[in-house]
């Protein structure tokens, strides 16, 4: 009976003792859905020595946190995580579950959807509730972002979606806000699990990645050459920013693939986004449009990027960039201002 299912849940993803940013964003998004439905917001947290993180979930909007703490869950593995979450869902019956569209979030959600025979909408960027029919409306960009599709799961529960990181907003932290912790056992033996994580190799360079940058200086094909990208690095240096770019620039070999922004690259939402020599194709824009302040420099006054920016300068990036570097340097020296580095 689908009426038995009540409540909104969020997968709380733990990485090296911390909660992934996307999980806090989803608590924010989940809070809005739960309020609309007038139900509690739950988080579920699996791992080893993770119970202390529940308090953080309360402070970001959760009313309840379901915890399974077990040495087997120390590193993410599909099977034990699926086992634990499926059992929680069977017992407590939430109507909606959100997962970050991360490596592990997507992996887990796909396994659970099959295990519970329910629907899963992938890589969503908009979430809402149709109150009249008590239905979850999960929308995702399709075909390179040219079109949005709303996907519904009418007859199965829970209704599930993975949500792109950096699209939803976390609520301001309410220190001291509390909730209920509900603990459950995993009930598995290590010997029954068919995969082992032998080693985790972390790339420190990647860690300070685009997704966390406060300021991003991005370049497109209009930069002209790999050498000209040096100007972007100089500006980034002055501002403590990260450099990113379009797919065409990555394909030209001017920039590493991990620094591509857009539909098939990273989604970013820095406080300031500079777009130099970027035309503003929809596939690029979907990856940066949630930035707080977007500035575009393009020599074509009709470039679509100007329709996705707050401020625009029609001009040659090669001429503007050196002036901008100089001007920022002077301004920051005068104010003695420091840029908050990431």
């Amino acid at each position: 009976m689908i009426e038995e299912y009540r409540g909104v849940w969020v997968f709380i993803e733990e990485r090296q003792g911390e909660i992934a940013g996307v999980s806090l964003e989803l608590l924010g998004a989940g809070r809005a859905l739960a309020d609309k439905l007038d139900v509690p917001l739950g988080g579920f947290l699996l791992g080893y020595n993770v119970k202390n993180l529940a308090q953080i979930c309360f402070e970001y909007g959760a009313d309840e946190v379901y915890v399974i703490d077990d040495p087997i869950l120390k590193n993410y593995r599909t099977e034990p995580f699926m086992h634990g979450v499926s059992n929680l869902v069977r017992k407590y019956k939430p109507e909606i579950i959100l997962y970050g569209a991360t490596s592990n979030g997507k992996d887990l959600a796909s396994a659970i959807a099959t295990d519970l025979s329910t629907g899963l909408t992938a890589d969503t960027t908009m979430l809402d509730i149709d109150l009249e029919n008590r239905l979850f409306e999960a929308s995702r960009p399709a075909f390179g972002g040219n079109i949005m599709a709303t996907i519904l799961c009418k007859k199965h529960r829970p209704q599930m979606a993975t949500v792109r990181p950096k699209v939803m907003k976390a609520l301001p932290r309410q220190v001291g806000r509390t909730g209920t912790i509900i603990e459950e056992k995993l009930g598995l033996e290590e010997s029954s699990i068919r995969t082992k994580v032998l080693e985790i190799v972390r790339d420190a360079k990647k860690k300070a990645n685009l997704a966390d940058a406060h300021i991003i200086v991005a370049g497109g094909k209009g930069m002209g050459s790999e050498e000209n990208f040096q100007l972007l690095y100089e500006l980034a240096d002055v501002l403590g920013a990260s450099v990113g770019g379009t797919r065409d620039v990555v394909e030209a070999g001017w920039l590493d693939h991990s620094l591509q922004i857009g539909q098939t690259g990273e989604t970013v939402s820095p406080k300031i986004y500079f777009a130099f020599g970027i035309s503003g194709a929809i596939q690029h824009v979907v990856g940066m449009k949630n930035s707080e302040l977007i500035i575009a420099v393009n020599k074509d006054p009709n470039a679509p990027i100007f329709n996705a920016s707050h401020y625009g300068i029609v001009g040659d990036a090669m001429e503007i960039l050196p002036l901008l570097i100089q001007e920022f340097k002077a301004a920051l020296e005068k104010s003695g201002g420091v840029v908050e580095h990431v």
Partner: peptide, 15 residues
């Protein structure tokens, strides 16, 4: 279990 409810083109942002 999933069905496509509606499809639409995102509104172009302001200039």
């Amino acid at each position: 279990p999933t069905v496509v409810g509606k499809m639409w083109a995102p509104k172009p942002p302001e200039k």
